[in-house]
């Protein structure tokens, strides 16, 4: 009796799966048959235009993307560590400040922060953040990244068992010594995967820096592609930078997965 029901359910499942495959294949075949391949090739995969982008797409644009990301990440990390410690502080005003900061910058679109840092200060105080796009862009992005990473770091610190702090303190370590040598090293092991994820998000967010009106030397990938598109009235530059983005981000996402699996294995 029971096995008959199971058999019937299996058959239904098999039919359903077959139907899914069928639909999928039909869509692909239809696309292959009816798409205008020549137009697609000319507009998205134009090798001549792609070749024109070299080497600047790598030596200038990709390089700038990486530099903006690295600077913003470094700034964000320092900021996030300070905010996380403030948020865990026993001094209430520190906690309030950290909470307000985190909620504010996570609640706003990153673009608003970038514009604020890029132009707002200049207009308001007649004082510009030095370093051009590099300075403004990294600071703007770093301010936002700090807010997100602060929550990650705080969670990591709190994931370290309470007994660790107690053991450290009972050996006579001051709170800061215990934090530096006992708690943070363990917390960072936990949060390296999520922090790497933040870095991937940051890489993509550097595309927002186009609003800062970059000069030829300070263009990052997206701005570079847009300008190239406009010049050539062709979408191939988008394909090229998409590939470059993936070359940068995919290894990182892969790394995150490996690290996560490793921490999982260590837990067991």
């Amino acid at each position: 009796m029971a096995s008959e029901v199971v058999l019937r359910r299996r058959r239904i499942q098999r039919i359903r799966r077959g139907a899914m495959y069928g639909i999928g294949i039909a869509v692909v075949v239809g696309f292959v048959l009816f798409a205008d391949w020549e137009t697609i090739r000319r507009n998205f995969f134009n090798t001549e235009i792609a070749r024109d982008m070299l080497p600047e797409v790598l030596t200038v644009a990709a390089r700038n993307t990486i530099i903006y990301t690295a600077l913003a990440f470094a700034l964000g990390l320092v900021l996030a560590l300070v905010l996380a410690l403030m948020k865990l502080s026993s001094i209430a005003p520190y906690r309030w400040f950290a909470t307000s900061y985190i909620e504010l910058f996570r609640g706003l679109p990153a673009l608003i922060t970038i514009i604020l840092v890029g132009f707002g200060f200049g207009i308001a105080f007649d004082w510009k953040i030095p370093g051009g796009t590099l300075g403004k862009g990294s600071i703007g992005l770093g301010l936002v990244a700090g807010a997100y990473m602060a929550e990650t770091i705080r969670a990591g610190i709190q994931a370290v068992p309470k007994g660790q702090m107690e053991a450290a303190r009972s050996l006579g370590m001051s709170p800061s010594t215990a934090m530096t040598y006992i708690i943070l090293p363990q917390a960072f092991r936990i949060i390296i995967p999520p922090l790497t994820n933040e870095m991937v998000l940051l890489i993509k967010d550097t595309s927002l820096l186009f609003v800062l009106g970059t000069t030829p030397a300070s263009k990052e990938l997206t701005k570079f592609a847009r300008d190239f598109m406009a010049q050539n009235q062709n979408a191939t530059p988008l394909t090229v930078v998409a590939i470059v983005y993936l070359i940068i981000t995919l290894p990182l996402t892969y790394l995150v997965r490996r690290l996560e699996r490793k921490t999982e294995a260590e837990k067991r």
Binding site: P161, G163, Q164, E166, A167, A168, R169, S170, L171, G172, M173, S174, I182, P185, Q186, R189
Partner: peptide, 20 residues
């Protein structure tokens, strides 16, 4: 407090060794 604690050793039920 910190100086005091160096004079008092403490051993916990869960050992609390530093795993890293």
């Amino acid at each position: 407090v910190d100086g005091l604690r160096t004079r008092i050793g403490m051993v916990f039920q869960q050992f609390n060794l530093f795993p890293h």
